[in-house]
């Protein structure tokens, strides 16, 4: 069996949005501890990892199940959530559906078809990073928006104790400099100068579920995948994005 009650459907919607920006389908592995999912996007450029401990739920009860769903369909259903709705997720093993129930002014039920999405057994690779930056999501997303004006990729740099978001197009350039004492920065754990370049659209998608005051943990090296972690509605979201390199 699997049944979970989430007090704010709108918050859970952000988790589904974050995944659906990058993935077509996902397998939620549920057990008595909580829900987890790991998947790479079809091009293997990005990885999404979702962990929701049972404590994040108002009620939670589960045995071991793999629940594979089409994310576009799930997202469309979650878009129907009203501001004060509670969300109930329950597995209907007989009908092979995931019931998605909104409880608010009325009780609205959707039955979402299950897909045979095999659980990936993917692990987030245990990469050692020289730099770890804790930054407010708002200013970081703004820096990405600035970069978006000049090119479709962006360079994230650690240089002389500063975190820099830099983009260069054929004609124009943009640069946002975060110093350690800037109010956007919570903390910087700097080991060495580093620089990696990334596709901007992926980075935008990965940060979409974060509210501007949420705190992103960014792990950065040179020509290494960037790792971005944050929490939404008690769920831990981790994203990994492969770099572009000069060849």
């Amino acid at each position: 069996m699997f049944r979970a009650v989430i007090s704010e459907a709108k918050e859970f919607k952000k988790v589904i949005d974050a995944a659906s920006n990058l993935l077509d389908e996902i397998c939620f592995e549920v057990n008595e501890e909580g829900i987890k999912a790991r998947a790479m996007d079809p091009s293997h450029v990005a990885l999404v990892s979702i962990d929701i401990p049972k404590e994040a739920f108002e009620e939670y009860e589960a045995d071991v199940h793999d629940i594979g769903v089409d994310l576009e369909a799930f997202k469309k259903i979650m878009n129907r959530a009203k501001a004060k709705d509670k969300l109930i997720l329950e597995l209907d093993e007989e009908k092979n559906k995931l019931n998605v129930i909104f409880k608010g002014a009325a009780t609205r039920k959707f039955a979402l078809a299950l897909y045979d999405v095999s659980s990936s057994n993917l692990q987030v690779p245990d990469i050692e990073y020289p730099n770890e930056i804790l930054i407010k999501a708002g200013p970081f997303v703004d820096a990405l928006k600035d970069a978006d004006l000049v090119n479709d990729h962006v360079t994230l740099k650690v240089e002389d104790g500063k975190f820099i978001v830099y983009a260069k197009g054929d004609l124009n350039e943009s640069e946002t400099i975060f110093e350690e004492d800037s109010e956007s920065i919570i903390s910087m754990n700097i080991g060495e100068n580093a620089k990696s370049t990334f596709n901007l659209e992926y980075l935008r998608d990965m940060t979409k579920a974060a509210s501007s005051s949420d705190i992103l943990k960014i792990y950065l090296g040179t020509d290494m995948p960037v790792k971005i972690e944050y929490d939404v509605a008690g769920a831990n979201l981790t994203f990994l994005l492969a770099p572009r390199i000069e060849s």
Partner: peptide
């Protein structure tokens, strides 16, 4: 010329 890597290279 820039090349987009995949994550597979880092899963070793």
């Amino acid at each position: 010329k820039a090349k987009q890597l995949t994550l597979d290279a880092f899963f070793k």
